[in-house]
Design a binder for these strands. Structure first.
Lengths: 224, 224
DNA sequence: GTCTATAACTAGATAGAC
DNA sequence: GTCTATCTAGTTATAGAC
Protein backbone atom coordinates (compact mmCIF):
# COMPACT_ATOMS: atom_id res chain seq x y z
CA UNK A 1 0.00 0.00 0.00
CA UNK A 2 2.73 2.49 0.80
CA UNK A 3 3.96 4.39 -2.20
CA UNK A 4 7.48 4.08 -3.51
CA UNK A 5 9.29 7.31 -4.11
CA UNK A 6 8.25 8.64 -7.47
CA UNK A 7 10.57 7.93 -10.34
CA UNK A 8 11.91 10.56 -12.71
CA UNK A 9 10.32 9.47 -15.94
CA UNK A 10 11.00 5.98 -17.12
CA UNK A 11 9.89 4.48 -13.86
CA UNK A 12 6.41 5.90 -13.79
CA UNK A 13 5.91 4.71 -17.32
CA UNK A 14 6.82 1.15 -16.41
CA UNK A 15 4.51 1.36 -13.46
CA UNK A 16 1.69 2.38 -15.75
CA UNK A 17 2.42 -0.33 -18.26
CA UNK A 18 2.22 -2.91 -15.50
CA UNK A 19 -1.07 -1.47 -14.26
CA UNK A 20 -2.53 -1.51 -17.76
CA UNK A 21 -1.43 -5.04 -18.57
CA UNK A 22 -2.53 -6.40 -15.21
CA UNK A 23 -5.92 -4.78 -15.51
CA UNK A 24 -6.49 -6.17 -18.96
CA UNK A 25 -5.42 -9.70 -18.08
CA UNK A 26 -7.19 -9.85 -14.74
CA UNK A 27 -10.38 -8.55 -16.31
CA UNK A 28 -10.19 -11.26 -18.93
CA UNK A 29 -9.13 -14.22 -16.84
CA UNK A 30 -9.42 -13.44 -13.16
CA UNK A 31 -7.04 -12.48 -10.40
CA UNK A 32 -6.04 -15.93 -9.20
CA UNK A 33 -5.58 -17.30 -12.70
CA UNK A 34 -3.21 -14.67 -14.03
CA UNK A 35 0.37 -14.86 -12.82
CA UNK A 36 2.73 -11.98 -12.24
CA UNK A 37 4.98 -13.51 -14.86
CA UNK A 38 2.35 -13.17 -17.54
CA UNK A 39 1.50 -9.67 -16.42
CA UNK A 40 5.06 -8.41 -16.52
CA UNK A 41 5.67 -10.20 -19.78
CA UNK A 42 2.64 -8.51 -21.35
CA UNK A 43 3.82 -5.19 -19.94
CA UNK A 44 7.28 -5.65 -21.37
CA UNK A 45 8.65 -5.39 -17.86
CA UNK A 46 10.63 -7.62 -15.58
CA UNK A 47 9.11 -9.96 -13.05
CA UNK A 48 10.91 -8.16 -10.23
CA UNK A 49 9.43 -4.81 -11.23
CA UNK A 50 6.06 -5.63 -9.79
CA UNK A 51 7.60 -6.02 -6.38
CA UNK A 52 9.58 -2.87 -6.84
CA UNK A 53 6.65 -0.63 -7.78
CA UNK A 54 4.03 -2.40 -5.75
CA UNK A 55 4.60 -4.53 -2.73
CA UNK A 56 2.87 -7.68 -3.78
CA UNK A 57 0.34 -9.08 -6.17
CA UNK A 58 -2.37 -8.11 -3.77
CA UNK A 59 -1.19 -4.51 -3.57
CA UNK A 60 -1.13 -4.38 -7.35
CA UNK A 61 -4.76 -5.42 -7.38
CA UNK A 62 -5.63 -2.64 -4.99
CA UNK A 63 -3.80 -0.09 -7.11
CA UNK A 64 -5.74 -1.21 -10.18
CA UNK A 65 -9.00 -0.90 -8.35
CA UNK A 66 -8.35 2.50 -6.81
CA UNK A 67 -7.18 3.98 -10.10
CA UNK A 68 -10.56 3.24 -11.66
CA UNK A 69 -13.07 3.59 -8.91
CA UNK A 70 -11.97 7.00 -7.66
CA UNK A 71 -12.84 8.97 -10.81
CA UNK A 72 -16.01 6.94 -11.34
CA UNK A 73 -17.32 7.67 -7.88
CA UNK A 74 -16.27 11.32 -8.05
CA UNK A 75 -18.28 11.72 -11.23
CA UNK A 76 -21.21 9.94 -9.62
CA UNK A 77 -21.21 12.42 -6.78
CA UNK A 78 -21.00 15.36 -9.16
CA UNK A 79 -23.92 14.13 -11.25
CA UNK A 80 -25.96 13.30 -8.17
CA UNK A 81 -25.65 16.86 -6.89
CA UNK A 82 -26.76 18.14 -10.29
CA UNK A 83 -29.70 15.73 -10.37
CA UNK A 84 -30.87 16.66 -6.90
CA UNK A 85 -30.72 20.31 -7.85
CA UNK A 86 -33.43 19.72 -10.44
CA UNK A 87 -36.83 21.12 -9.52
CA UNK A 88 -39.67 18.88 -8.38
CA UNK A 89 -39.45 15.24 -7.38
CA UNK A 90 -40.97 13.47 -10.33
CA UNK A 91 -39.92 10.86 -12.79
CA UNK A 92 -37.34 13.03 -14.53
CA UNK A 93 -35.52 13.63 -11.30
CA UNK A 94 -35.47 9.93 -10.52
CA UNK A 95 -34.19 9.19 -13.97
CA UNK A 96 -31.43 11.74 -13.50
CA UNK A 97 -30.38 10.10 -10.25
CA UNK A 98 -30.33 6.66 -11.82
CA UNK A 99 -28.33 8.08 -14.67
CA UNK A 100 -25.89 9.67 -12.23
CA UNK A 101 -25.17 6.26 -10.79
CA UNK A 102 -25.07 4.26 -13.99
CA UNK A 103 -23.43 6.49 -16.56
CA UNK A 104 -20.04 7.15 -14.94
CA UNK A 105 -19.48 3.43 -14.54
CA UNK A 106 -20.37 2.58 -18.09
CA UNK A 107 -18.81 5.56 -19.75
CA UNK A 108 -15.57 5.62 -17.80
CA UNK A 109 -14.97 1.89 -17.85
CA UNK A 110 -15.54 2.07 -21.56
CA UNK A 111 -13.01 4.84 -21.87
CA UNK A 112 -10.54 2.85 -19.84
CA UNK A 113 -10.92 -0.20 -22.01
CA UNK A 114 -11.76 -3.53 -20.45
CA UNK A 115 -10.81 -2.36 -16.98
CA UNK A 116 -14.43 -2.07 -15.98
CA UNK A 117 -14.79 -5.77 -15.54
CA UNK A 118 -12.02 -5.72 -12.98
CA UNK A 119 -14.10 -3.41 -10.84
CA UNK A 120 -16.96 -5.85 -11.13
CA UNK A 121 -14.79 -8.83 -10.33
CA UNK A 122 -13.44 -7.06 -7.31
CA UNK A 123 -16.93 -6.41 -6.08
CA UNK A 124 -17.53 -10.11 -6.51
CA UNK A 125 -14.45 -10.84 -4.47
CA UNK A 126 -15.78 -8.80 -1.61
CA UNK A 127 -17.64 -11.78 -0.29
CA UNK A 128 -14.74 -14.15 -0.81
CA UNK A 129 -11.83 -12.25 0.65
CA UNK A 130 -10.73 -13.91 3.87
CA UNK A 131 -10.54 -10.96 6.25
CA UNK A 132 -10.59 -7.24 5.99
CA UNK A 133 -8.01 -6.37 3.40
CA UNK A 134 -9.94 -5.82 0.18
CA UNK A 135 -13.21 -5.43 1.99
CA UNK A 136 -12.01 -2.38 3.89
CA UNK A 137 -10.82 -0.81 0.69
CA UNK A 138 -14.12 -1.42 -1.02
CA UNK A 139 -16.20 -0.10 1.81
CA UNK A 140 -14.08 3.02 2.01
CA UNK A 141 -14.68 3.70 -1.67
CA UNK A 142 -18.33 2.72 -1.80
CA UNK A 143 -19.74 3.69 1.53
CA UNK A 144 -20.40 7.40 0.81
CA UNK A 145 -21.80 6.60 -2.61
CA UNK A 146 -24.13 3.96 -1.28
CA UNK A 147 -25.38 6.25 1.49
CA UNK A 148 -25.98 9.29 -0.67
CA UNK A 149 -27.76 7.43 -3.44
CA UNK A 150 -29.83 5.38 -1.03
CA UNK A 151 -31.00 8.59 0.61
CA UNK A 152 -31.82 10.09 -2.78
CA UNK A 153 -33.79 7.03 -3.86
CA UNK A 154 -35.64 6.99 -0.59
CA UNK A 155 -36.70 10.61 -1.00
CA UNK A 156 -37.82 10.04 -4.58
CA UNK A 157 -39.68 6.80 -3.89
CA UNK A 158 -41.97 7.67 -1.00
CA UNK A 159 -44.35 4.84 -1.84
CA UNK A 160 -41.70 2.27 -0.92
CA UNK A 161 -40.64 1.04 2.49
CA UNK A 162 -37.05 1.49 3.55
CA UNK A 163 -36.19 -2.17 3.05
CA UNK A 164 -37.65 -2.19 -0.46
CA UNK A 165 -35.47 0.77 -1.43
CA UNK A 166 -32.36 -1.03 -0.26
CA UNK A 167 -33.35 -4.23 -2.00
CA UNK A 168 -33.96 -2.39 -5.26
CA UNK A 169 -30.75 -0.44 -5.05
CA UNK A 170 -28.97 -3.74 -4.64
CA UNK A 171 -30.69 -5.30 -7.66
CA UNK A 172 -29.80 -2.20 -9.62
CA UNK A 173 -26.15 -2.91 -8.88
CA UNK A 174 -26.58 -6.44 -10.14
CA UNK A 175 -28.05 -5.40 -13.45
CA UNK A 176 -25.36 -2.78 -13.93
CA UNK A 177 -22.37 -4.93 -13.10
CA UNK A 178 -23.63 -7.86 -15.10
CA UNK A 179 -23.30 -5.67 -18.16
CA UNK A 180 -19.55 -6.15 -17.90
CA UNK A 181 -19.99 -9.76 -18.94
CA UNK A 182 -22.35 -9.02 -21.79
CA UNK A 183 -19.79 -8.54 -24.51
CA UNK A 184 -19.28 -12.18 -25.34
CA UNK A 185 -22.64 -13.49 -24.42
CA UNK A 186 -25.43 -11.18 -25.37
CA UNK A 187 -24.83 -10.58 -29.07
CA UNK A 188 -25.03 -14.26 -29.87
CA UNK A 189 -28.06 -14.86 -27.67
CA UNK A 190 -29.94 -11.89 -29.10
CA UNK A 191 -29.75 -12.58 -32.82
CA UNK A 192 -27.06 -9.85 -32.82
CA UNK A 193 -29.73 -7.27 -31.96
CA UNK A 194 -27.97 -6.14 -28.79
CA UNK A 195 -24.50 -4.68 -29.00
CA UNK A 196 -22.94 -4.13 -25.58
CA UNK A 197 -19.92 -2.45 -27.19
CA UNK A 198 -22.20 0.47 -27.88
CA UNK A 199 -22.32 2.35 -24.59
CA UNK A 200 -25.20 4.59 -25.63
CA UNK A 201 -27.31 1.59 -26.53
CA UNK A 202 -26.54 -0.06 -23.21
CA UNK A 203 -27.31 3.08 -21.22
CA UNK A 204 -30.55 3.82 -23.04
CA UNK A 205 -31.80 0.29 -22.58
CA UNK A 206 -30.75 0.09 -18.95
CA UNK A 207 -32.18 3.41 -17.71
CA UNK A 208 -35.86 2.76 -18.50
CA UNK A 209 -35.48 -0.77 -17.18
CA UNK A 210 -34.21 0.57 -13.86
CA UNK A 211 -36.65 3.46 -13.59
CA UNK A 212 -39.52 1.07 -14.22
CA UNK A 213 -38.09 -1.32 -11.65
CA UNK A 214 -37.65 1.33 -8.96
CA UNK A 215 -41.06 2.91 -9.42
CA UNK A 216 -42.99 -0.34 -9.45
CA UNK A 217 -45.47 -0.80 -6.61
CA UNK A 218 -44.28 -2.87 -3.72
CA UNK A 219 -45.47 -6.46 -3.94
CA UNK A 220 -47.13 -7.87 -0.88
CA UNK A 221 -49.52 -10.45 -2.25
CA UNK A 222 -47.84 -13.81 -2.00
CA UNK A 223 -49.62 -16.21 -4.36
CA UNK A 224 -50.12 -19.76 -3.18
CA UNK B 1 -16.44 -36.04 -18.51
CA UNK B 2 -16.81 -39.77 -19.01
CA UNK B 3 -18.33 -41.53 -16.02
CA UNK B 4 -16.45 -44.04 -14.00
CA UNK B 5 -18.25 -47.29 -13.41
CA UNK B 6 -20.59 -46.85 -10.49
CA UNK B 7 -19.34 -48.05 -7.15
CA UNK B 8 -21.27 -50.39 -4.91
CA UNK B 9 -21.85 -48.23 -1.86
CA UNK B 10 -18.91 -46.63 -0.19
CA UNK B 11 -17.61 -45.20 -3.42
CA UNK B 12 -20.66 -43.20 -4.37
CA UNK B 13 -20.69 -41.74 -0.91
CA UNK B 14 -17.12 -40.53 -1.22
CA UNK B 15 -17.94 -39.08 -4.60
CA UNK B 16 -20.78 -37.12 -3.07
CA UNK B 17 -18.72 -35.89 -0.18
CA UNK B 18 -16.15 -34.56 -2.61
CA UNK B 19 -18.84 -32.83 -4.65
CA UNK B 20 -20.33 -31.24 -1.57
CA UNK B 21 -17.04 -30.02 -0.16
CA UNK B 22 -15.83 -28.73 -3.51
CA UNK B 23 -19.05 -26.87 -4.11
CA UNK B 24 -18.95 -25.22 -0.73
CA UNK B 25 -15.32 -24.17 -0.97
CA UNK B 26 -15.45 -23.01 -4.56
CA UNK B 27 -18.57 -20.99 -3.85
CA UNK B 28 -16.81 -19.30 -0.97
CA UNK B 29 -13.38 -18.69 -2.46
CA UNK B 30 -13.36 -19.32 -6.16
CA UNK B 31 -12.28 -22.11 -8.46
CA UNK B 32 -8.67 -21.11 -9.00
CA UNK B 33 -8.06 -20.30 -5.36
CA UNK B 34 -9.23 -23.59 -3.88
CA UNK B 35 -6.89 -26.53 -4.29
CA UNK B 36 -7.84 -30.16 -4.63
CA UNK B 37 -5.92 -30.79 -1.43
CA UNK B 38 -8.19 -28.57 0.57
CA UNK B 39 -11.26 -30.02 -1.10
CA UNK B 40 -10.35 -33.62 -0.39
CA UNK B 41 -9.27 -32.72 3.10
CA UNK B 42 -12.61 -31.05 3.79
CA UNK B 43 -14.37 -34.07 2.31
CA UNK B 44 -12.41 -36.46 4.48
CA UNK B 45 -11.15 -38.13 1.34
CA UNK B 46 -7.78 -38.70 -0.21
CA UNK B 47 -6.19 -36.40 -2.71
CA UNK B 48 -6.07 -39.20 -5.27
CA UNK B 49 -9.79 -39.82 -4.99
CA UNK B 50 -10.65 -36.78 -7.02
CA UNK B 51 -8.77 -38.18 -9.94
CA UNK B 52 -10.34 -41.52 -9.44
CA UNK B 53 -13.95 -40.33 -9.42
CA UNK B 54 -13.50 -37.41 -11.76
CA UNK B 55 -10.84 -36.98 -14.32
CA UNK B 56 -9.41 -33.67 -13.28
CA UNK B 57 -10.15 -30.54 -11.34
CA UNK B 58 -11.90 -29.16 -14.38
CA UNK B 59 -14.15 -32.20 -14.73
CA UNK B 60 -15.01 -31.90 -11.06
CA UNK B 61 -16.15 -28.35 -11.69
CA UNK B 62 -18.37 -29.51 -14.52
CA UNK B 63 -19.90 -32.21 -12.35
CA UNK B 64 -20.69 -29.64 -9.66
CA UNK B 65 -22.33 -27.39 -12.16
CA UNK B 66 -24.40 -30.04 -13.88
CA UNK B 67 -25.65 -31.48 -10.62
CA UNK B 68 -27.21 -28.14 -9.73
CA UNK B 69 -28.29 -26.60 -12.99
CA UNK B 70 -30.17 -29.59 -14.35
CA UNK B 71 -32.92 -29.70 -11.69
CA UNK B 72 -33.11 -25.89 -11.62
CA UNK B 73 -33.70 -25.64 -15.33
CA UNK B 74 -36.11 -28.57 -15.34
CA UNK B 75 -38.20 -26.83 -12.72
CA UNK B 76 -38.02 -23.61 -14.71
CA UNK B 77 -39.43 -25.36 -17.74
CA UNK B 78 -42.19 -26.98 -15.72
CA UNK B 79 -43.26 -23.68 -14.18
CA UNK B 80 -43.04 -21.89 -17.51
CA UNK B 81 -45.48 -24.33 -19.07
CA UNK B 82 -47.84 -23.80 -16.18
CA UNK B 83 -47.53 -20.03 -16.44
CA UNK B 84 -48.18 -20.01 -20.16
CA UNK B 85 -51.26 -22.14 -19.63
CA UNK B 86 -52.81 -19.32 -17.62
CA UNK B 87 -55.61 -17.48 -19.40
CA UNK B 88 -55.12 -14.01 -20.87
CA UNK B 89 -51.85 -12.19 -21.40
CA UNK B 90 -51.86 -9.64 -18.63
CA UNK B 91 -49.70 -8.69 -15.71
CA UNK B 92 -50.41 -11.83 -13.73
CA UNK B 93 -49.22 -14.01 -16.54
CA UNK B 94 -46.03 -12.00 -16.88
CA UNK B 95 -45.45 -12.23 -13.17
CA UNK B 96 -45.91 -15.99 -13.31
CA UNK B 97 -43.31 -16.25 -16.07
CA UNK B 98 -40.83 -14.11 -14.14
CA UNK B 99 -41.50 -16.26 -11.11
CA UNK B 100 -40.92 -19.39 -13.14
CA UNK B 101 -37.47 -18.16 -14.00
CA UNK B 102 -36.46 -16.73 -10.66
CA UNK B 103 -37.93 -19.05 -8.07
CA UNK B 104 -36.26 -22.35 -8.97
CA UNK B 105 -32.87 -20.71 -8.85
CA UNK B 106 -33.41 -19.10 -5.48
CA UNK B 107 -35.32 -21.90 -3.88
CA UNK B 108 -33.18 -24.78 -5.09
CA UNK B 109 -29.85 -23.09 -4.51
CA UNK B 110 -31.08 -22.32 -1.04
CA UNK B 111 -32.00 -25.92 -0.52
CA UNK B 112 -28.63 -27.00 -1.75
CA UNK B 113 -26.83 -24.71 0.62
CA UNK B 114 -24.26 -22.29 -0.72
CA UNK B 115 -23.97 -24.12 -4.03
CA UNK B 116 -25.95 -21.42 -5.75
CA UNK B 117 -23.03 -19.09 -5.86
CA UNK B 118 -21.04 -21.66 -7.77
CA UNK B 119 -23.56 -21.53 -10.54
CA UNK B 120 -23.19 -17.77 -10.60
CA UNK B 121 -19.43 -17.95 -10.59
CA UNK B 122 -19.49 -20.39 -13.44
CA UNK B 123 -21.65 -18.07 -15.45
CA UNK B 124 -19.07 -15.44 -14.76
CA UNK B 125 -16.38 -17.75 -16.02
CA UNK B 126 -18.19 -18.15 -19.31
CA UNK B 127 -16.44 -15.10 -20.65
CA UNK B 128 -13.06 -16.08 -19.25
CA UNK B 129 -12.73 -19.70 -20.23
CA UNK B 130 -10.08 -20.04 -22.90
CA UNK B 131 -11.89 -22.04 -25.53
CA UNK B 132 -14.99 -24.11 -25.71
CA UNK B 133 -14.89 -26.39 -22.72
CA UNK B 134 -17.05 -24.77 -20.08
CA UNK B 135 -18.76 -22.55 -22.58
CA UNK B 136 -20.16 -25.48 -24.51
CA UNK B 137 -21.47 -26.99 -21.32
CA UNK B 138 -23.13 -23.75 -20.29
CA UNK B 139 -24.75 -23.16 -23.63
CA UNK B 140 -26.05 -26.68 -23.72
CA UNK B 141 -27.73 -26.18 -20.34
CA UNK B 142 -28.95 -22.65 -20.89
CA UNK B 143 -29.82 -22.44 -24.54
CA UNK B 144 -33.32 -23.97 -24.38
CA UNK B 145 -34.15 -21.99 -21.26
CA UNK B 146 -33.02 -18.73 -22.76
CA UNK B 147 -34.96 -19.35 -25.97
CA UNK B 148 -38.22 -20.37 -24.35
CA UNK B 149 -38.28 -17.57 -21.82
CA UNK B 150 -37.24 -14.97 -24.38
CA UNK B 151 -40.12 -16.07 -26.58
CA UNK B 152 -42.52 -15.89 -23.63
CA UNK B 153 -41.35 -12.41 -22.66
CA UNK B 154 -41.63 -11.27 -26.22
CA UNK B 155 -45.22 -12.45 -26.45
CA UNK B 156 -46.15 -10.82 -23.16
CA UNK B 157 -44.40 -7.52 -23.86
CA UNK B 158 -45.73 -6.50 -27.26
CA UNK B 159 -44.92 -2.85 -26.64
CA UNK B 160 -41.21 -3.60 -26.67
CA UNK B 161 -38.90 -4.12 -29.62
CA UNK B 162 -37.08 -7.41 -29.94
CA UNK B 163 -33.77 -5.91 -28.86
CA UNK B 164 -35.31 -4.34 -25.77
CA UNK B 165 -36.70 -7.70 -24.69
CA UNK B 166 -33.27 -9.31 -24.96
CA UNK B 167 -31.61 -6.45 -23.10
CA UNK B 168 -34.13 -6.67 -20.29
CA UNK B 169 -33.90 -10.43 -20.03
CA UNK B 170 -30.17 -9.99 -19.68
CA UNK B 171 -30.50 -7.37 -16.94
CA UNK B 172 -32.92 -9.66 -15.18
CA UNK B 173 -30.20 -12.28 -15.06
CA UNK B 174 -27.82 -9.75 -13.54
CA UNK B 175 -30.20 -8.79 -10.75
CA UNK B 176 -30.93 -12.44 -10.00
CA UNK B 177 -27.37 -13.71 -9.94
CA UNK B 178 -26.13 -10.76 -7.93
CA UNK B 179 -28.35 -11.97 -5.13
CA UNK B 180 -25.85 -14.74 -4.51
CA UNK B 181 -23.37 -12.17 -3.20
CA UNK B 182 -25.90 -10.38 -1.04
CA UNK B 183 -25.48 -12.42 2.10
CA UNK B 184 -22.43 -10.63 3.44
CA UNK B 185 -23.00 -7.25 1.95
CA UNK B 186 -26.60 -6.24 2.00
CA UNK B 187 -27.55 -6.66 5.67
CA UNK B 188 -24.85 -4.27 6.82
CA UNK B 189 -25.59 -1.73 4.10
CA UNK B 190 -29.32 -1.77 4.74
CA UNK B 191 -29.44 -1.11 8.47
CA UNK B 192 -30.17 -4.86 8.75
CA UNK B 193 -33.53 -4.30 7.07
CA UNK B 194 -32.81 -6.73 4.24
CA UNK B 195 -32.11 -10.34 5.03
CA UNK B 196 -30.97 -12.33 1.98
CA UNK B 197 -31.01 -15.54 4.00
CA UNK B 198 -34.79 -15.33 3.87
CA UNK B 199 -35.68 -16.68 0.45
CA UNK B 200 -39.27 -15.53 0.57
CA UNK B 201 -38.20 -12.00 1.34
CA UNK B 202 -35.75 -12.02 -1.54
CA UNK B 203 -38.28 -13.43 -3.98
CA UNK B 204 -41.05 -11.06 -2.98
CA UNK B 205 -38.79 -8.04 -3.32
CA UNK B 206 -37.29 -9.19 -6.59
CA UNK B 207 -40.48 -10.10 -8.47
CA UNK B 208 -42.15 -6.65 -8.43
CA UNK B 209 -38.81 -5.07 -9.24
CA UNK B 210 -38.50 -7.24 -12.32
CA UNK B 211 -42.11 -6.97 -13.43
CA UNK B 212 -41.89 -3.19 -13.18
CA UNK B 213 -38.62 -3.25 -15.10
CA UNK B 214 -39.95 -5.45 -17.90
CA UNK B 215 -43.19 -3.55 -18.37
CA UNK B 216 -41.63 -0.09 -18.38
CA UNK B 217 -42.04 1.85 -21.60
CA UNK B 218 -39.10 1.77 -23.94
CA UNK B 219 -36.90 4.84 -23.57
CA UNK B 220 -36.08 6.66 -26.74
CA UNK B 221 -35.59 10.24 -25.63
CA UNK B 222 -31.90 10.81 -25.09
CA UNK B 223 -31.44 13.90 -22.94
CA UNK B 224 -28.60 16.23 -23.76
C1' DG C 1 -11.41 -48.22 -3.50
C1' DT C 2 -8.21 -46.06 -0.82
C1' DC C 3 -3.85 -44.84 0.31
C1' DT C 4 1.40 -43.00 0.19
C1' DA C 5 4.92 -41.12 -2.33
C1' DT C 6 6.50 -38.53 -5.75
C1' DA C 7 6.92 -36.59 -10.36
C1' DA C 8 6.58 -32.46 -13.00
C1' DC C 9 5.47 -28.00 -12.79
C1' DT C 10 4.20 -23.23 -11.50
C1' DA C 11 3.43 -19.73 -8.25
C1' DG C 12 4.98 -15.24 -5.58
C1' DA C 13 8.75 -13.19 -3.65
C1' DT C 14 13.57 -11.57 -3.13
C1' DA C 15 18.84 -11.18 -3.02
C1' DG C 16 22.20 -9.12 -5.28
C1' DA C 17 24.77 -7.91 -9.72
C1' DC C 18 24.81 -4.09 -12.79
C1' DG D 1 15.59 1.12 -12.07
C1' DT D 2 16.20 -3.07 -14.21
C1' DC D 3 17.87 -7.43 -14.58
C1' DT D 4 19.08 -12.75 -13.65
C1' DA D 5 19.00 -16.42 -10.68
C1' DT D 6 17.10 -18.70 -7.14
C1' DC D 7 14.38 -19.86 -2.88
C1' DT D 8 10.38 -21.70 -0.82
C1' DA D 9 6.10 -23.37 -1.12
C1' DG D 10 2.34 -24.41 -3.42
C1' DT D 11 -0.14 -26.83 -7.31
C1' DT D 12 -2.26 -30.97 -10.36
C1' DA D 13 -1.75 -35.39 -11.53
C1' DT D 14 -0.29 -40.21 -11.33
C1' DA D 15 2.17 -44.67 -10.35
C1' DG D 16 1.91 -48.37 -7.63
C1' DA D 17 1.41 -50.65 -2.85
C1' DC D 18 -2.30 -52.55 -0.19
Amino acid sequence: MKRRKRANGRGDETRMRILDAAERLIAAEGYATVSLRRITQAAGANIAAVNYYFESKHALLEAIFVRRIVPINAERMRLLEAALALPGAGREKLEAVVRAFVEPHLRLTREFGPGGTVVMQLLGRLSTDPEGKIEKLLLKQYDPIWRRFAAAFRALLPHLGKAAVYWRFYYLLGALYYLSSARQWLPRRSERLCNPENVEEAIESLIPFLVGALTAPEGNAKPA
